[in-house]
Design a binder for these strands. Structure first.
Lengths: 258, 258
DNA sequence: ATAATAGTGTCTCTTAGACATTATGCG
DNA sequence: CGCATAATGTCTAAGAGACACTATTAT
């Protein structure tokens, strides 16, 4: 096999698709300060009406990777093109798919990434891009749409991936400000994994005091050496915490760490 | 973009590489029956001396996927070609890699799979394939070799992957006979994840009696309704167990299941 | 005072972990 | 009997889980 003359049929491209997730806050109206509602959202783009395949359909952002870049670089490039977000965002490779017929244009595998984006980074979104091109959907709405290609399945796979990561790694940090309250952390976990239910008092105590989990988050202190608090969720100030670099490794065969 | 005339440069192929792991038993000599030693092994193939790239190097088995098959089918095809093993084996996609220069032949990404193979399936290996073509290596030996392309890195990635899976899923079953003793399970886990150390008496009790883990394995009963035992590891017979279909979901935020 | 969330206390039952003890079967 | 592994028992400290209660701040 040489570079110039091909003996075999080769792929018609190696696209990278990317499911960009964010969690949006919706302040509830009322005279008393109350916890914002949070929803998981995903960014979709509308294919042009002139597209050869799936014209006018909503799809995951994506595009062809190039010979001169890595797959992750291609994913970051797409992210930048669609949302103007830089590389200070976490992306993860979910899987690579190909099966005959998945793309009418030919032999077209797809490397699927997902990105976890803090809501604050998507603020300028509708301003920066053409009004009807990229749009943030509530997750249920996105799942209910008929997406281009096999993107419904890719979206479900990405969702499964981040749900799993949410429970087994500290990716919750990607959706949170640097300093957050216990309640905010709890709410983020529940937003991504609705099945996660626990008495929040126990959640807090176990997170802070048990051997296997203490060290995961720590109190944030101000210049005066006193713990910092915030009143953004309630009139009564709540203490702020931050993630450390500790990532517990867990096991089904014993409790906690190995 | 059409199927016939390409406007853009496209990949020069989409290879699938596969790290085939197995656990070998080596009976220790002696007059008393004692536990076999177990080692993690990986299958490598030797590249022909006529290869354009890395001639004579050991490499992960692999080959080009085709337009007419899925990626998993390509992986199973490679597995079949190298080991004559059928589809009754578990494979998992680890990751897809590409970066400029990773293959001197051109734009060559690689989809990495790993397979977990019961030792019994590899028995006919050296007989069925050319003597010097495919060989089972002890893992440390394989890691110490200079492998073709970036296969050292791919092998390390695969190893990280199965170590993680070993602790968080029931893939241990792939290395075990259908019925196994607690000790055998314990030994398999330790073989793949040496850091896993626990008093085996506690391991057994917790596995069988705690809320979050009971249901993972169950006793095996014979036709007479009595629990089955084996004396393959010791003179004193030990009770046999089997995995159920239960796969616990675990979390860093609480103990056990969500 | 009241709304809403933050934070503490308490009690019981389960589990983790360390370690000792007994049991089985064969040479 | 001695060897190697299997299986059971015991004790303490830690954690899970349920739930009641107190605290803080702005309106």
């Amino acid at each position: 096999m040489t570079t110039s003359t091909k003996k075999y049929r080769t792929p018609d491209g190696l696209p990278v698709d990317i499911a960009i997730f964010t969690i949006t806050s919706h302040a509830k109206p009322g005279s008393y300060k109350t916890l914002a509602e949070r929803k998981l959202g995903v960014l979709l783009v509308k294919r042009s009406e002139q597209s050869a395949a799936y014209p006018g359909y909503w799809a995951l952002p994506g595009g062809f990777s190039k010979e001169t870049e890595t797959l992750a670089e291609a994913a970051y490039r797409e992210l930048k093109e669609e949302t103007n977000i830089g590389e200070d965002v976490r992306i993860e490779q979910v899987k690579t798919v190909y099966y005959p017929g998945r793309d009418p244009r030919g032999w077209m595998p797809s490397v699927l990434y997902c990105a976890l984006v803090n809501e604050s980074l998507l603020l300028g979104l509708t301003a920066d891009s053409d009004a009807d091109e990229a749009q943030l959907f509530d997750l249920e709405d996105a799942l209910a749409l008929p997406l281009a290609f096999d993107h419904n399945e890719l979206l479900r796979d990405s969702l499964t991936h981040i749900r799993h990561q949410m429970m087994t790694t500290t990716i919750a940090r990607e959706f949170l400000p640097k300093s957050f309250t216990i309640r905010e952390l709890y709410q983020i976990i529940q937003t991504v994994v609705p099945a996660f239910e626990e008495d929040i008092a126990n959640f807090k105590r176990n997170l802070l005091t048990t051997k296997t989990r203490s060290g995961l988050i720590r109190e944030v202190f101000g210049a005066d050496g006193k713990p910092l608090t915030t009143d953004r969720n309630s009139n009564r100030p709540a203490q702020l915490y931050e993630f450390t670099t500790y990532e517990p490794k867990i096991s089904i065969y014993n409790s906690g760490i190995f």
